Simulated assay, not measured.
Amino acid sequence: MPLTLTLEPAVTPALRDGLLDLWTDVSNAGGAVGYVPPVTREEIRPALVQHFAAMADGRVKLLAGHDEEGRVAATAFLTFNTHHLMTHWLWLYTVMVHPRHQGKGWGRDLLRTAADTARAMDGIEAIRLTCRGGLGLERFYEACGYKEVGRVPGAIRVAPGDDREDVIMLLPLV
């Protein structure tokens, strides 16, 4: 059961709806992608619209994965820095694999393809991402070659009295 990854797919209603479904399902399964369950598609829609606007401006590239049935099953958004002193690295945001496909190696495939994509871009020397502490996500990213380079205590408030660390990870590409 392969994952088919596409860089900068055409933004169609089917892709939009698939991304909304993926983001909702991942969030409601406890995934740390900007929301805390329960969440609806309508709550996520404004964030997706922001991603689409940044894509239209050329500030973001979408890497989308589809499963064997053609459903959106994985995503990562590669986001360029706008500060002139930081254009040699980019951010990786909203990294998701649908819960029904986790454990198949698709997350590693997604990150490997994101790194290969970034390596092919002129002047990009590293990828940074952040992840929510307390879930063990940093172990997954470390297994994919990322190194923890910092933590911001209490930066993410998932609920009153439940603050988490923002873990900063870096993947050197050169």
Rank of each mutant, 00 (worst) to 15 (best):
T40N: 06
D122T: 13
L20C: 07
T79M: 12
R132K: 05
P153M: 03
D163A: 14
E42R: 02
V95I: 15
T24F: 01
F80E: 10
A54S: 12
V174L: 04
L173K: 01
E43Y: 00
Q50H: 05
G58Y: 11
L170W: 09
Y35C: 00
E69M: 05
R128F: 10
L20T: 07
F77I: 08
R16S: 01
A14G: 00
P2G: 08
M169N: 01
I124R: 08
A56D: 07
M55H: 07
T117K: 02
H66Q: 12
L170F: 01
G58I: 09
V95E: 14
F77C: 15
K61S: 13
V167E: 03
D122G: 09
G30F: 01
K147E: 09
D57P: 03
I124Q: 05
N81W: 01
E68M: 02
L173C: 00
E165G: 04
H66S: 15
A76K: 05
V11Q: 03
G107Q: 04
V26I: 00
T12H: 04
M96P: 06
D162Y: 07
C144P: 04
R59A: 15
A73C: 13
P46V: 00
A118K: 03
I124E: 03
E8L: 02
A114E: 07
A10I: 02
T94W: 15
A74I: 10
T6V: 11
D109H: 11
D25I: 13
C144H: 04
F80T: 05
G30C: 00
R71I: 07
R128S: 00
V26K: 04
P153H: 10
H84C: 11
R119G: 12
R16E: 13
P46E: 00
V95P: 10
G161W: 06
G133N: 02
G31Y: 13
D21T: 12
L3G: 02
I127D: 02
F77H: 14
T94G: 14
L85V: 12
D162H: 05
I124A: 06
V167K: 06
V174M: 03
M96K: 14
L15G: 06
K104W: 09
R112I: 10
G133E: 03
H88S: 09
G150N: 06
M55G: 08
D162K: 12
G107D: 08
G134H: 06
K104I: 02
K104H: 13
V149Y: 14
R157A: 13
L170M: 09
G145F: 02
P37F: 05
T113A: 15
I44R: 01
A115C: 15
L110A: 06
M121T: 06
G30S: 03
L90T: 10
A118R: 01
A64K: 02
A32Q: 13
R164N: 09
L7W: 01
A76V: 15
Q102T: 15
